[in-house]
Simulated scan of single mutants.
Amino acid sequence: MKILVFANFGMGLYNFRKELLEALINQNNEVYVSLPNDEYVPKLEKIGCKFVDTHLDRRGTNPLKDIKLLINYMGIIKRIKPNVVLTYTIKPNVYGGIACAITKTPYITNITGLGTSIENKGLIQKVTLKLYRLGLKKASCVFFQNKTNQRFFIDNKIVKSNTRLIPGSGVNLELQKFEKYPMIDDNIKFLFIGRIMKAKGIEELMEAAELVKVQYPNVQFHLIGGSEENYYKKLDELERLDIIKYHGQQNDVHSYIKQTHATILPSYHEGLANVLLESASSGRPVLASRVTGCIEAFDEGLTGFGFEAKNVESLVEAIIKFINLPYDQKRVMGIYGRRKMENEFDRNIVISAYLKEIKKTVEKEKHNESIREVS
């Protein structure tokens, strides 16, 4: 069987879906990955994927480029003739879905989050929703990572009954293994992992770090992630003042999680935040916005603390609350977080759901083909 995957970049595909790709390959399927060429492509090829170089402007709104992407997707489908297509993130979901519908190819979609284009009301939201209706109309199954996103798509009549809820991308419990909590230390270390951009709450985090450092000068704020928006000047300034330590893009985030006391994510919106799952799996408490995609990943007061998104005062309050917790309470929070991941977010749950839906989709297509042949 041939399985084609449409995605927008290699990092997400490799870090969060590698085990699914390996499971499909181990079942003797040919797995093709269509995405822009990046440093993760050799890793994907190493596990057995066949790479299809596909230019994609992740944040662009040029309709001519998007039409070109649609035509490109149709060409890829016609050339490979997959039995089923898997799509991830907005543009592959929309244009990959339309391409599959036109070519009458079965496909399964994953809504990894609403994204800024839908979260921000206005013309772009209306256009995006219309495109999503076209892209998801013929989908065999649409996976959602949280109930709120699922309800939004149903209420807006983008999808009907062919939906299924999964625990995000899940977490690899062996890779993100439980780590002993750092020894008692006056220098509490907080960690942010994510793209350096407004929607991730980076502005609130930087302001909160400045305020907290006035009261607690020994506290450290470590930031990991590539800067997708122009924050370099501010990052440099805060680093010179010893407010933050910016580590740029890192491939091995687990080694950083291991050394810190808690992870902070002040995001405005998420599908289901992988950084929170990985941190909790490693035995670290999490501090996160009380927004869909974050609140599912922690239990208030038991495995972490929540705060209001876009609210510096609320963020500072949560940080100080954590700083003042007794050491043993911090450590136990991490233990409970790991337990929550084991019970609710094991990546094998996601893999099983995909294998089941792929099998059902392919069998249904075979049944339809046999009916067409008879008629």
Rank of each mutant, 00 (worst) to 15 (best):
V214P: 06
K147V: 14
M341A: 07
A208F: 13
L277Q: 14
V33G: 04
N311C: 06
K366G: 01
K160M: 13
I202P: 10
I154P: 08
E229P: 12
H55S: 10
T128Y: 05
R58K: 14
R58H: 01
Y88F: 11
R195G: 03
G248H: 09
L13P: 00
L86T: 10
K50S: 04
Q329E: 14
L134F: 13
S281M: 01
L56P: 07
V374G: 06
P92G: 00
T303D: 12
E373P: 00
F345A: 06
T128C: 08
I358S: 00
N8R: 05
D57C: 05
K78F: 08
N8S: 15
V171M: 11
K360M: 08
A99F: 05
V127K: 08
G225L: 08
Q250H: 06
L129T: 11
S169D: 04
L44K: 02
V5Y: 06
C294H: 02
I47Y: 02
R331Q: 14
M206S: 03
R372V: 09
F178V: 14
K180C: 10
D66V: 09
R133D: 04
E270F: 02
D186I: 10
A318H: 04
L235A: 10
D252T: 12
G75P: 05
T292D: 15
K258V: 04
L173Q: 08
E210I: 14
R372A: 10
E229M: 11
L4G: 00
N37V: 12
E270D: 00
L165S: 02
N28R: 12
Y327T: 09
V142F: 07
E308N: 14
Y73K: 11
Q259R: 08
K81I: 06
A7H: 04
P82E: 06
P285V: 09
P42M: 02
T260S: 07
F298H: 11
H269P: 00
V214G: 07
A199N: 12
G225C: 06
A209M: 05
F345G: 09
K18C: 03
L191Y: 06
I25M: 04
L131I: 07
Q125D: 08
G75M: 09
E373R: 14
K2T: 03
V350D: 08
A7M: 05
P42G: 01
F153P: 08
N29P: 03
T89S: 13
T103M: 15
K18F: 00
N15W: 00
Q259H: 07
T112G: 05
I166L: 03
L241M: 13
